[in-house]
Amino acid sequence: MTQPEQLSRQRRFVAPKPGDTLELIAERELPEMSVADAMAALQGWNLHIFLMRNPPGMLTGSDVVFVEPPVEGDGNTVFGGSARANSDA
């Protein structure tokens, strides 16, 4: 998803297209890497898809897939013990 110029910089992400897999997204969005390295990178940047799913890595159409690490200084705040069933595991 592109961000209009007048907005501040945010962490870059994509929304899966119909027929997408994580491998296809890795190839498309991280062409400078080998597929294996790109997949490893996606796994590290998208723990919500890999750690909170059963099976791990199951991609749903509405997912946000980050294609870069967290923006320096922002962190990616994650609630512990959230008040709602937020895990598919």
Partner: peptide, 18 residues
């Protein structure tokens, strides 16, 4: 949204704005 993760919530804000 995935309210438990800030970066994902921010992505949803941008999608909703679009």
């Amino acid at each position: 949204p995935e309210f438990y993760a800030t970066d994902i919530t921010l992505a949803r804000v941008d999608q909703l704005a679009e």
